[in-house]
Simulated scan of single mutants.
Amino acid sequence: MDPREWSLILFTVLTQASVGAFLFTLWFEQRSKETAARQAYQRLHGVLIPVMIVALLASLGHLGRPMQALSSLGNLGTSWLSREIFFTGGFFVLLVLMVLLKRNDGVRRVLAWLTGLAGVAAVISMAMIYHMSIMPAWQGYGTFVAFGGTTFFLGAALAAVVLLGRAYQDQARDLRSLAWTAVVVALIEAALVPLQMAALAGGSEAAQATAALLAGPYAWLVILRWALALIVGVVVLLAAIRRLAMQQVPGSLFYVACLAILVSEIAGRYLFYATAVPLGIG
C-alpha cells in the first residue's frame, strides 16, 4: 500500500466519524428542549472542530499539489472529487460558524441543518469517488456500507464519549440511543461481510485477487478488525446499555468501546486500501 494512503485513512475515518457524531446531535436536539442538553451538544460540536482540522490536514498529505484542490472546485457538475472537497470544506466551515454563533438560536438552527446536509453529501461524495474507480473491490454497495458504517458506528462512539463530559437530564437516553445504534450498525455491517466476500470470489480476476488477499495474507487483520468491533465494541456497548438501565452512567465502558471501535475502523480502512486490486491486474 502506498504510504500516502495513510493520510486517506485518517481523512476518511475522521471526517465520517465527525459527520456521524454531528448527525446524532441534530437528532437529539429535535427531541430535547433542555438547556443543559443543548450545551452538551454544543460542546460536542466544539470537539469536532479539531478532529476535522486533523482530517483536513491529513488529506493534504495525499495531494501532490494541495492548491489544485481549490482549482478543482470548478468541476462540481462533473467530478465527485470536486464535490467531496466542496462538501467536506462546507461541513467544516458551517460547523465553525455554528460554534461561533451558538447564542443566536434562529441562525444556529438553520446552520445545523445545512451542516448536516453538507456532511451527508460529503460522505456520499467520498463513496462515489471509489465506487466509480477501476477497483472491483470498491465498486458496488460495499464502499457505501463501509463508509456509512464508519459514519454511524464510530460516530456514535465518538458522540458518546464527548457527551459523557457534561451531565444533563436526557444524558442516559442519548447514550442508550447511541449505544443501540452502534450495535445495530455493527451487526448489519458484519452480516454483509460474507456476501461481499462471495461477490468478490465470484467476480473478475481483480476481484478474486482481493478476495484471496483478504482470506490469505490479511486474514489475521480481518479477524482482529471484527474481534475488536464485535467482541470488544458491541459486547462492551451491550454491557453499557445494561448499566444505563440500572440508572448508572458507565463512562469507562464507553471509553473502552470507543477505543476498540476506532482501532477497528482504522484497521478496516487499511484493508480497504491495501487489498484493492485494479482491473487488468490479478
Rank of each mutant, 00 (worst) to 15 (best):
M1S: 15
P3H: 05
S7G: 15
L8A: 11
T12V: 14
T12Q: 08
S18M: 05
T25Q: 06
L26C: 06
L26Q: 11
F28G: 01
R31S: 13
T35A: 14
R38T: 12
Q39H: 14
R43T: 15
G46T: 12
V47T: 12
V51E: 07
V51K: 14
I53M: 14
L56C: 14
L63P: 10
P66K: 03
S71P: 09
S72M: 03
L76C: 11
L76Y: 09
G77H: 04
G77V: 09
T78V: 11
T78K: 05
L81P: 02
L81D: 06
S82W: 04
E84W: 04
E84P: 00
E84T: 03
E84C: 00
F87K: 01
F91Y: 12
F91D: 02
F92T: 10
M98N: 08
L101E: 05
L101N: 08
R103A: 10
N104S: 05
G106Q: 10
R108N: 14
V110N: 02
V110E: 06
W113F: 15
L114F: 15
T115R: 00
G116F: 08
A118T: 05
A118C: 12
I124A: 13
M126L: 14
M126G: 02
M128Y: 08
I129A: 07
H131I: 10
I134F: 15
M135A: 13
G140Q: 10
F147E: 01
F147G: 00
G148H: 01
T150L: 10
G155K: 09
A157G: 01
A160D: 06
V161F: 05
V161G: 04
V162A: 05
L163G: 03
R166I: 14
Q171D: 13
Q171K: 15
D174F: 09
R176T: 12
A179K: 03
A186Q: 05
I188T: 06
I188E: 02
E189P: 00
A190E: 02
A191Q: 13
L192Y: 14
P194F: 12
Q196N: 13
A201E: 12
S204N: 05
S204E: 09
A207M: 02
A207V: 05
A209K: 00
P217F: 09
W220F: 13
I223M: 13
R225L: 07
W226L: 11
A229W: 07
I231Y: 09
G233I: 11
V234C: 03
V236W: 13
L237F: 11
L238H: 04
A240R: 00
I241G: 01
R242G: 11
R243G: 10
L244D: 07
M246T: 11
Q247S: 12
Q247N: 15
V249S: 03
F254E: 01
Y255T: 06
A260G: 03
A260T: 01
S264M: 03
E265S: 10
A267K: 00
Y273D: 06
Y273E: 06
A274H: 08
A276N: 09
L279K: 12
G282R: 00
